[in-house]
């Protein structure tokens, strides 16, 4: 499946400066694995060593957070729009 992936500002320098990229994969996990092969510098920011989603990354298929769609197993359909955004978190702890 070919989908369009929107790249957040903070990842653009490591991904050649592009704002979007066309990606292939049947699931979000496959899409992100493919991205890390193409752009090894961002690997640690997308996936954990065990292949699960990085804690501080939000991944959306169209308008939905993939955490509610099965995480890395979330299916990707043709012409879906995938958006990556850094999770925004912190606190006094």
């Amino acid at each position: 499946m070919a989908a369009v992936l929107r790249i957040p500002t903070v990842l653009r320098p490591a991904m050649g400066g592009a704002t979007t990229v066309t990606v292939e994969g049947a699931t979000i996990g496959e899409v992100l694995q493919t991205l890390t092969t193409t752009y090894p510098a961002i690997k640690g920011q997308l996936l954990n060593d065990d292949g699960t989603l990085h804690r501080f990354l939000n991944v959306y298929i169209n308008d939905d957070d993939v955490r509610y769609l099965g995480g890395v197993d979330a299916p990707v359909a043709n012409d879906d729009e995938i958006t990556l955004l850094p999770a925004v978190a912190g606190g006094a702890a």
């Binding site: 957040p8 939000n58 957070d65 955490r67 955004l85 999770a87 978190a89 606190g91 006094a92 702890a93």
Partner: peptide, 19 residues
């Protein structure tokens, strides 16, 4: 979304809408 007095996390849907 952390529902905590010590940490916070912005709702991912609020973040997406803003971007």
């Amino acid at each position: 979304m952390a529902h905590s007095a010590k940490v916070y996390e912005i709702d991912s849907r609020v973040l997406l809408r803003a971007f």
